[in-house]
């Protein structure tokens, strides 16, 4: 089982992945929505997508909507550099939405666990 991490800032992407890996998950990385789509096609064992909001071309929300419109029901956590409240209002169907900050080390694993619990395998 893999968790797909999508962020155009490769440093942020790797830091997020490091947090995810620290609690024992395996990760795949993509730097934009298009690459993320390719990864999803190539690796069927992806169980969760964690994507940044603010990316060039396709934003995190647009990426989420694209997945849903293609019938993919994978759990999806949106990360953002800004205040996350507005985004949840914009897209209530998101499984989770949180700010990327130094407390992510604790908050992200907790959110992953919550979201995964909601999706029985």
């Amino acid at each position: 089982m893999h968790i797909l991490v999508v962020d155009d800032d490769s440093l942020a992407c790797e830091m997020t992945a490091a947090v995810v890996e620290s609690v024992g998950h395996q990760t795949l990385l993509a730097e934009n929505a298009i690459e993320a789509m390719e990864k999803l096609d190539a690796a069927p064992d992806i169980a969760l997508v964690i994507s940044d909001m603010n990316m060039p071309l396709v934003s995190g929300i647009e990426f989420f909507r694209e997945l849903r419109s293609q019938g993919l029901t994978l759990p999806f956590i949106l990360l953002t550099g800004d205040n996350p409240d507005g985004l949840l209002q914009q897209e209530p169907a998101l499984d989770g939405c949180m700010i990327k900050d130094f407390s992510m080390e604790e908050t992200l694993p907790r959110m992953i666990a919550e979201v995964m619990a909601r999706y029985p395998r």
């Binding site: 800032d9 942020a12 550099g81 700010i99 990327k100 900050d101 130094f102």
Partner: peptide, 19 residues
């Protein structure tokens, strides 16, 4: 302007993760 914005945004994002 877009490129400038992105650079500022990226610095903001990763610096926040590093506190």
């Amino acid at each position: 302007i877009n490129t400038l914005f992105r650079s500022a945004h990226t610095i903001k994002g990763s610096s926040r993760m590093l506190k």
